[in-house]
Write a protein that binds this DNA or RNA. Structure first.
Length: 388
RNA sequence: CGGGGCGUAGCGCAGUCUGGUAGCGCAUCUGCUUUGGGAGCAGGGGGUCGGAAGUUCGAAUCUUCUCGCCCCGACCA
């Protein structure tokens, strides 16, 4: 990708309080559209998509099937589960042209139960494990901290259906472990904590927190109370939804009993904010992404746009690594390119200086080291890091 | 929803108290000089001061209403 073809509005100044919101706005990842509503610009969307993919993969590894539920749900479904009134003003209600009432889903237990119950299943179909990654809306009293506590957010929500509580509970434990694997992959050290089931209901639940400055909860970490940020929450729901919504199967004695359900949430857009806080360095005012989810693993900085050889080499490297390289081909000072580079956060930076190039060398920066290597060895060097 | 604050150029802000038809930095455009970590000089463009009503000869500035946004609290999967 060339900078000249990529919409990346980096800002010098931004009026924001929380670190993640400030960096995300500054670095051109997001823009505010209204209170609690953020547009994801190309760079931010790339990052979120990478995280989404990692989460999606792990959910599939755990045995979930990915599907997708609309953002709008018929209000009647939520009346069936008796959450329509319980959810209150946080739930956004909309009416279509026929004056039918819908809600913009703050979660998706109801339509998911409906999805399974329409399928007319028997015990041989069990277990059924589904998940979707979809936008949710909660009309928060006070949105804040950018995408940490916004109104429209991107959430991964899984739903499991088993015959017995024991089976459901065992799966719950598997997901519990799976969550730790996901957080580890993302480089986040999440702490699980038994929690209230609250509004959602059910038999038990666990929250997953990371220590954070923009946290909203307090949990005990290493003996002291730190405010923390909740990134995920899993629930063993029992028949909280399946009973009122009549999702049941018939046993050999011709008796009907409701399925045992679990639900598993992960705040994808919130995780992006958490990761900014993790991978942003205050002293250098820069981001360094791990290779696995860097929006661009390689940043090519051409120091002299008048140097033909520099341009040719930059183009060559950029073409070679089309999908993972970001070539700053703008006709601006090197200093500005470095500043942009600090915000882009590519772990591998290739700087092409005209004087070094004359000696057949280019500069590569990786993991805090800066070294000049011969042109012929660039690909070997990069492939080695990328494990190609 | 209670308390506080803000809305002036793309971004960040001053000007408001004490009314006299708008200013700074960055960005942008033009030209020249520069070019190894946000270059320098010169010149230019861009704002019905969130909106409405009122007071006044005259309102960014005063009054009332309204909309939007932020912070603290309460609330929160």
């Amino acid at each position: 990708m060339k900078a000249s073809n990529f919409f990346l509005p980096i800002r010098r100044e931004v009026n924001e309080v929380s670190i993640s919101a400030k960096i995300m706005l500054k670095s051109g990842m997001i823009q505010k559209l209204a209170s609690g509503l953020y547009s994801w610009l190309p760079m931010g969307y790339k990052i979120m998509s990478k995280i989404e993919n990692i989460i999606s993969e792990e959910f599939e590894n755990m045995g979930f099937n990915r599907m997708c539920i609309p953002t709008l749900h018929p209000a009647d479904l939520w009346k069936e589960s008796e959450r329509y009134d319980a959810y209150g003003k946080e739930m956004l209600r909309v009416f279509d042209r026929k004056n039918n009432e819908f809600i913009y889903g703050p979660s998706a237990e109801e339509p998911c139960v409906d999805m399974v119950r329409q399928a007319n299943i028997n015990k041989n179909n069990l277990p059924i494990n589904l998940f979707n990654i979809q936008w949710k809306f909660r009309d928060e009293l006070r949105p804040r901290f950018g995408v940490v506590r916004c109104r429209e957010f991107y959430m991964c929500d899984g739903y499991s259906f088993h015959e017995t509580v024991d089976q459901s509970s065992k799966f719950y434990d598997d997901v519990f472990k799976g969550y730790h694997r996901i957080f580890k992959k993302l480089g986040l050290e999440a702490i699980a904590k038994e929690a209230e089931t609250g509004e959602v209901g059910g038999l038990k639940s666990h929250e997953f927190h990371i220590p954070s400055d923009v946290g909203e909860d307090e949990i005990e970490i290493n003996g002291s109370n730190k405010s923390s940020l909740e990134l995920g929450h899993i629930f063993l729901l029992g028949d909280r939804y399946t009973a009122p919504m009549k999702l049941s199967i018939t046993n050999s004695e011709n008796k009907q009993f409701p399925l045992i359900m679990g639900c598993y949430g992960l705040g994808v857009s919130r995780i992006v904010a958490a990761m900014i806080e993790k991978y942003y360095n205050h002293e250098s005012d820069s981001i360094v992404w791990p290779i696995d989810f860097a929006p661009f693993a390689i940043n090519i900085i051409n120091a002299d746009m008048k140097c033909e050889n520099c341009i040719n080499l930059s183009n060559e490297i950029c073409n070679k690594y089309k999908n993972i390289a970001f070539y700053d081909d703008r006709i601006i000072s090197v200093g500005q390119k470095f500043t942009a580079s600090d915000m882009i956060g590519s772990p591998i930076k290739i700087v092409i200086w005209p004087k070094e190039l004359k000696n057949g060398l280019v500069e590569i920066r990786f993991q805090g080291k800066k070294e000049n290597i011969e042109i012929e060895k660039i690909y070997e060097y990069v492939n080695n890091i990328m494990q190609f």
